[in-house]
Design a protein around this nucleic acid. Sequence first.
DNA 1: GTGTTTTCTGTACAGAGTGTCGTATAATGT
DNA 2: ACATTATACGACACTCTGTACAGAAAACAC
Lengths: 203, 203
Amino acid sequence: MTEITRKPDRRIERTRQLLRDALMDLIVQRGYESVTVQDITDHANVARTTFYLHFRDKDDLLFSTMRDIYQDLMVRMSAARPETIMGIRIDLHSTADFEHVQQYADFYKIMLSEKGSMVFLMRVQALLAEMCRDQILAPMLANGGHLTLPIDLAASHLAWAMIGTFHWWLQTGMTYSASDMAKMELELCAGELPNLLQQVPLE
Amino acid sequence: MTEITRKPDRRIERTRQLLRDALMDLIVQRGYESVTVQDITDHANVARTTFYLHFRDKDDLLFSTMRDIYQDLMVRMSAARPETIMGIRIDLHSTADFEHVQQYADFYKIMLSEKGSMVFLMRVQALLAEMCRDQILAPMLANGGHLTLPIDLAASHLAWAMIGTFHWWLQTGMTYSASDMAKMELELCAGELPNLLQQVPLE
DNA sequence: GTGTTTTCTGTACAGAGTGTCGTATAATGT
DNA sequence: ACATTATACGACACTCTGTACAGAAAACAC
């Protein structure tokens, strides 16, 4: 899009893609932290020195990989956008989110485990929180909804809740469908679970 | 308690405590992953070789540190236990949890950030989930509460929600008190937020 | 206190990984 | 075909790990 990106040498794109793919493969096999730059370049059939021509370090490559993945997610979410009323998403947590996780299940299963990366998790959390705030909470408040809690706290809460549901889904063998999980997510955040908890005498 | 633990040489306890303290200090200063065994032993004024006489690696030392910390938490929680009716905790999320986080705020602020450790996070999550299930959800269901969702999913959800609230609290400067946060947590899981979300037409 | 046991220290070592040089080689865009 | 640019290769200094061993120091038992 920028004028600098106008001449992408084939070799550059090819090498970077090889490295990104190698990282994905190796993360699935051995977890993130234990993968070394040497592993990546070996697996990609690229000289180790070449790695440093494109990325500062392993985290830098991970960010590049994430841009790839979330570009995909954004396309998905735009496609799912139609299900809104007056700009408010009908489905609190779209099945599109769970379908995305399903598509990269092997990757997320590792990254959302003790073999994953805190850097990755915090980026995902920030991304989801922003999404929850702008696409769910803000529109609701604009349409007369009421909230005394800080909106960023509520957004953060929903983001962590989503991560939690992803985590449970992935670690228990993904026996439910993406749309089942979206329904469950709703029950957890605004249905059955809050109802149960409200039964407790509060003072 | 076991017969093996009956003779703890002073030197052993002293060295281990020095190493645990050094780890805590260095985590606060530089984050978990970037701290090396050398850093720890230097800071503790202990020979590096000595480290390996007590701990397999850095994670092993971290677990030892966690046992220390959570022993403290358990004492706190037992003290807070009285606030129950028929075995059900009145306060869904006790202020004791937030007071514990407050006590180790410097530590948690780092560990629940991109400078933290996934191993740590997953252990905390598992601990909180178990606690939520056994001390909150299970008693409620035993007393006539209804839940079609898997109880472990609900417990996991609440655990992640707590971690999320801890995270938000720590990263936004801890301007609220522990009891304020406990109230907010309740509003997020079973009060204001679910009410807001339920206003959305669901089909 | 003395003697025995155990822990700690200091050094050394092999192994692995990192990040950065040049220089030669090969592929690319025009 | 040519100039440009990326890659390969070998080498380098550096850091960290985990283990081994012999001697010094501390704790324990009496």
